Computed example of a mutant assay.
Amino acid sequence: MAGTSAKLGSHQPSRSISLPSRLHPKSQKIEAQLNKLKTEWDLSFSSRETPIGSDTIQSGLTALTELYASTKELIHSPLTQQALLQNHSRKTMEETLDTSIGLLDACGAARELLLGMKENVQSLQSALRRKVVGDSSIESNVQSYISFRKNARKEVAKSLKALKTMQKNNLFVHDQDHYHHLQPLQMVTKVLSELSTIAISIFGAIFVFLSMPKVANGWSLISKLVPISSEKGQKIFNEVGSVDISLFSLQSQLRKNETKIDVEIVRRRLESVDVCIDGLESRLDCLFRCLIQHRVSLLNLLTP
Rank of each mutant, 00 (worst) to 15 (best):
H180R: 15
R255V: 07
V132L: 09
S249F: 11
E112S: 11
A152H: 06
L302N: 03
R129P: 01
A216D: 11
F207K: 00
S144N: 13
L23N: 07
L43W: 09
E95I: 15
R153V: 05
R130W: 09
S14Q: 14
K38Y: 10
L270G: 00
A205H: 05
T92E: 13
V142A: 01
S282C: 05
V266Q: 00
A216M: 12
L284H: 00
Q125D: 08
A6L: 14
I138P: 00
H294L: 13
K158C: 07
N238Y: 03
W41P: 01
S297K: 02
S14L: 13
P227T: 02
K214F: 09
S123L: 13
G60Q: 02
L85Y: 12
I57G: 00
D244K: 06
H76S: 09
N300W: 02
F172A: 07
L287D: 11
L104V: 05
L34F: 05
T71N: 07
Q81H: 13
I146H: 04
R90I: 03
P227G: 06
L299R: 14
E239H: 10
V275R: 10
K91C: 08
G116P: 04
K36P: 02
L160E: 13
M212Y: 07
Q143I: 11
E231W: 09
E258R: 14
D177A: 13
K7M: 12
M93T: 08
L298P: 00
L74D: 02
I200A: 02
T189P: 07
Y68N: 09
R90S: 11
S70D: 15
S137K: 10
N300P: 02
L221G: 01
T65L: 05
D278P: 00
L287K: 09
S21M: 13
R15T: 08
L64A: 06
G102A: 10
Q251A: 02
Q122F: 06
L247T: 00
T189C: 14
Q253T: 09
T259C: 06
M1A: 09
R22L: 10
L284Y: 06
I206G: 05
L291I: 05
I200M: 07
F45G: 14
L225Y: 10
E40H: 10
P78D: 04
K161W: 06
S136H: 13
K224Y: 12
C286I: 07
I202W: 01
K38G: 07
K150R: 15
L299G: 04
L64H: 06
A127F: 00
D244A: 10
S89K: 15
N151K: 15
G233T: 06
D244M: 14
G60S: 04
K72C: 09
L79T: 07
L192P: 01
V142H: 02
E40Y: 11
K118T: 12
S16W: 06
L84R: 15
G134L: 06
L84K: 15
H181N: 08
G53S: 14
L284F: 03
G60R: 01
K232V: 13
D98E: 14
